[in-house]
Structure formats: structure tokens, C-alpha cells
Write a protein that binds this DNA or RNA. Sequence first.
DNA 1: CCGTAAACAGACTTTTTGGTCTGTTACCCT
DNA 2: AGGGTAACAGACCAAAAAGTCTGTTTACGG
Lengths: 204, 204
Amino acid sequence: MEKQLKRMATMQRIQTTGLEVFYQKGYFNTSIDDILKELSLSKGAFYYHFQSKEEFFISIVQNLLFRKVYSSLIEPIEGQEDPLNKIVACFDEALETAEHNFLDYGFVLSNFITEFNGKNPDIMNYLQDIMKVWEVNLVTALQKGKTDGFVNRHIDSEAVATYLISSYIGIRTLMVEGNSKMLRYKYIQQLRQYFKLIEYKEPA
Amino acid sequence: MEKQLKRMATMQRIQTTGLEVFYQKGYFNTSIDDILKELSLSKGAFYYHFQSKEEFFISIVQNLLFRKVYSSLIEPIEGQEDPLNKIVACFDEALETAEHNFLDYGFVLSNFITEFNGKNPDIMNYLQDIMKVWEVNLVTALQKGKTDGFVNRHIDSEAVATYLISSYIGIRTLMVEGNSKMLRYKYIQQLRQYFKLIEYKEPA
DNA sequence: CCGTAAACAGACTTTTTGGTCTGTTACCCT
DNA sequence: AGGGTAACAGACCAAAAAGTCTGTTTACGG
């Protein structure tokens, strides 16, 4: 049963550096050999574990990418009370790790959505599924916030979720050009302003 | 002097469809032959007018892309009074053309920034120059709005500009997955909400 | 009307790519 | 301990890519 473990370990190794290189160079600009060079592995090893470049990428999306988005953007909010403050904290935290971890720069997920849009509907579906999970989670959190008395009942939860996702994608895109610390500060500042509008206000 | 005109005409033809194909398929996933096939032109023609694929793309950025961003996002705001309403109208207008003109889907500029980030610093500079012009214009408009009594003097113009750009980039990225009409409606709605916070309020 | 240069055509070269295939090593099971 | 299979190495192939080069057409100037 040792073999099973080794197999998984090798696959994960290839996937991990695969994601790194794909992110850095883009999917179409990255060759399998680029990844293999980084790992000192051979083509034989790669095609023993994966059927094709495309299937390989999809496995990365479903394993690494989904987990990453889930743990950093969905889980910290899911089921929590006081969603607005949780969202701010979660976004701030995510932007902070983005500052220091180059792999986080530019929000990998939206980068790939941009790259595959109109080119590969198959892969696009996998990517957009992740986005949908995120969006649904945000909407749910906002609705729960309404019943728990944290969020103004008159706001349009779906519109707010859309606006949040948009701004987050955008700020991550902007952060690639450096000065990310200042951008993060400004962004969180404006996000707090925005939330003042939609939080529950005690009836006077 | 007829020749000069024809030369320019041909170059523009190649650039125009070049931008279309680059946008649809991505720079690295597009071959020169892809563009030439669309135009029924030969390699000889292309390399007679342009030195290389890279130089060709840069010429597209400086000619077509800059003009597009300028005319749709900068000019409508530049020097105008009442910047907040002008910005809403401008963004709404830009999103509306984005709905109907597939070439606008996904905000071409930020798509390319995503694609070239970390891969080609040279091209990145040209792209980010355009972003900077936009940002400066927004900041200037907001500052002028303060002196003209349309914008709250206490807001941080640069932070607001960053937030605006972020959300715009984000919403354009989201619009690629369809349902763009609803997204546009929700986005503009939330943008108006946000602006209520930063508009000038008559001292009671 | 003709020579000359601009504008273009298209075969060719070199490099890179995704993917195949045969051969070799390492490890588990009996 | 040794046979068998999983895990990997790396040469190989066909297609595609950017870019070159030689040849042909077109059109302007004298």
C-alpha cells in the first residue's frame, strides 16, 4: 500500500508546481517540459499519471484551486454571524497573504477565467463552478445576516455579492503592478465605507 | 502619395483584426497565421509592415487600445462638472456597449494585463501606462468635484479611484460568463449606493 | 510607356510543442 | 529470493510556431 501513497505524492508534486508555473507563465505559454524541468522529472512520468495537458489542468482546478478558494474565501464566512465584519476580515486576510505570497497575486482563479474565456468551454465550466460556490456563499451569508439583525433588510443580497466579487477581482488584478500594500489599505477602507450603507441600523 | 495611404490602410486592417483575434484567443494562443488567415494575407505582407509579433502587438496597444480606453472611459469624464453622475453615466454606457459588442466583453485592457503580467515587462509597461492615465483622470475629476461642491471634501480621492477601477475591472471580468444585463444593472445600482456616501452633503 | 521600388505571395527553416513508445529501475508479494 | 508490475527515463514523431528569403505583382514618377 506504500505505492498508493507514493503515487499520490508524485501526482501532487506535479500538480503543485504545475499550478505555480501555469500561473506565472499562463496555460498556453507553459509547456509540459517547463513544469517537468522544474521537477527534474521526465515526460514518461508525467504521461504515466495524467492523460493530457488539459486533463492535468482540470485536476489542478478541482484539487488545488477549489480548495484554495474554499479555505481562504468561503470557509471563514460560512455560517458565521456578523457577516459584514467577517467579510472585511476575510478579504483583508486574503489580501494580506496575497501581498507576501506571490502565487496569490492576481487571484489565480480570475486569471484563468480570463485566459480560458471563449477558448475552452469545458475548463471554463469548472472554473465558473468555483465562482458560483463563492457567490452563493456570500448571498447566503448576507441573507442570514438579515435574519440575525446584522444586515439591513432592504439591501439586494445578490447585487451586493456581485459588487463584492467584482471589487475583489479588480483589486487583485491591480495588485499585480506592485504597491499592493497601499492598494490593500485603500480598498479595505472603501469597503468599510460601503458596508456602512448596508449594515443594520437601530431604528431611532 | 496614394501609396502612403494604402500602406496605412493595410496596417490598420491588420491591426484591427489582430486585436480581435488576440482578444478572442489570447496573445500566446494566437499565431500570426491565425490573423493572416482571417485577412487572406500572406506572411510576406505582415513582416513587410511589422518587425515582429511583439512589436506588432505594441503598435496595437498604442493605437487601438489606448484610443478605445480614452474615448470610452476618460474623455466622457475629463473636465466635466458633477463627476459622480458623470462617472456613473460613463460606466453604464461602457457596460452597455460591452453587452452588445463582443469585442468589449471582459475589458480588453485588463485581460491583457492579466495575460502579460510577469511574462513581458516591456508590454506590461505600455498597458499599465494606459491604466495610469485613467486613474489620474479619475482622481483629478474627484478633486475638481470637491472644489466645485459636488464631492465630500473628506473622502480620499485616490482610494475612491482605486475602488472604482477595481470594481469596474471586476464586473467586466464577471460579465464574460453571460447574464451581463443583470450584472450591469446590479453593479450600477450598488455604485449609486456607494456614491451616496461620498457626494457633497448640504450642511444642515 | 517603362524602369524602379513598394507591396505582397508563399515556400522554407528552425525551434518548440503535445504526445507516443520502448526500455529500464524500483519495489511489493508470495 | 525472484517474478511481476508500478513508476519512471528519454529518444522519437508529427504538427505548429515565428521568422526568413526569394520571387512576383502593382503602381507611381519621369
